[in-house]
Design a binder for these strands. Structure first.
Lengths: 157, 157
DNA sequence: GAGAATTTGTTTGATCCCCAAACAATCTCC
DNA sequence: GGAGATTGTTTGGGGATCAAACAAATTCTC
């Protein structure tokens, strides 16, 4: 049952954790996420990285259905519903009736949504600049390339 | 209001997304997470990456308090409570009474917890091998190093 | 063309993660 | 000894996530 142990050390031993890709990935991701939230909060905007990705996808693929969007985001279609509800309530996007398929909604940004997205994109660029401040342009290219490899590599199993 | 748009393209345009560190990071992270879950499910074990990290931390720092652990994990101490509850119910760890400070719990793995962790660590190694199958050993070192830079870089703002 | 099977968006239900605020027990500091 | 801080817990409020069931609409099959 594990003996009641001694004193907690001042600094923590992380064992094998720092050598694990999954662990380091999670920490970097969390730091990036924090800076993203921070950047937007400071600018008086409220948006998550996921919402930004969604808006970009809808902007660049206007008319796509909720199923197609859910698939692109890697989430269930039922998960997408409340997310779209919120974005729609904020006046950023709309569910249009599809002229060709009565089952689907044709998603599109509103004009306000497009304006907001331009604003958001500026913030994201500033955010990216900041989180990459420790890295050279070449390093960023390498990093993105390796991450892409991890993504496609793990996916193909 | 956004005009009701045309036809959804077969393949999605991701715009600037693939050039964003945050986006690529999130996708890699998600793929890794999926493979982690898959690896454990196939072995008939149930564990999340977060739980694994927690167990390693407790194992390597037996006797540490919930506050110290929460800080190391970057979560609120109230968030930690139900997580520990579950792990404790599974018989993997225990909250001991601290002999020196009546407020704190001295966390430690049980013997079953240590045995389980050894089993988990084997699975994690197999998982790491798989997700890094597309990368050379040198690339993994570079990747981990760059991710660490991102983490500490973003943290210091 | 009529009926069967599939697809889509939605609702509901279940877990889970997260934080903030409040609380009792305990410790620390004066 | 008493004021103030710390620790673990509970409660309340958001969300994210999936699975299952459903109605409406489309596609497939005969």
């Amino acid at each position: 049952m594990g003996r009641p142990p001694a004193k907690p050390p001042a600094t923590l031993d992380r064992g094998l954790l720092p050598s694990l890709l999954g662990y380091v990935l999670r920490r970097a991701q969390s730091a990036v996420f924090d800076d993203f939230a921070n950047t937007f909060a400071k600018a008086g905007e409220a948006l998550t990285p996921g919402e930004f990705g969604l808006l970009v996808l809808v902007d660049r693929n206007a008319g796509l259905s909720q199923m197609a969007l859910a698939r692109a985001l890697g989430i269930d279609r039922s998960t997408l519903v409340p997310i779209l509800d919120r974005l729609q309530e904020r006046g950023l996007l709309m569910r249009h009736r599809s002229p060709t398929d009565g089952r689907t909604h044709a998603l599109a940004l509103t004009q306000a949504g497009e304006k907001a997205l331009a604003r958001f994109a500026r913030l994201v660029r500033a955010h990216e600049k900041r989180i990459a401040s420790q890295l050279s342009a070449a390093e960023i290219r390498v990093l993105i390339d390796l991450l892409e490899k991890v993504h496609t590599g793990a996916r193909s199993l």
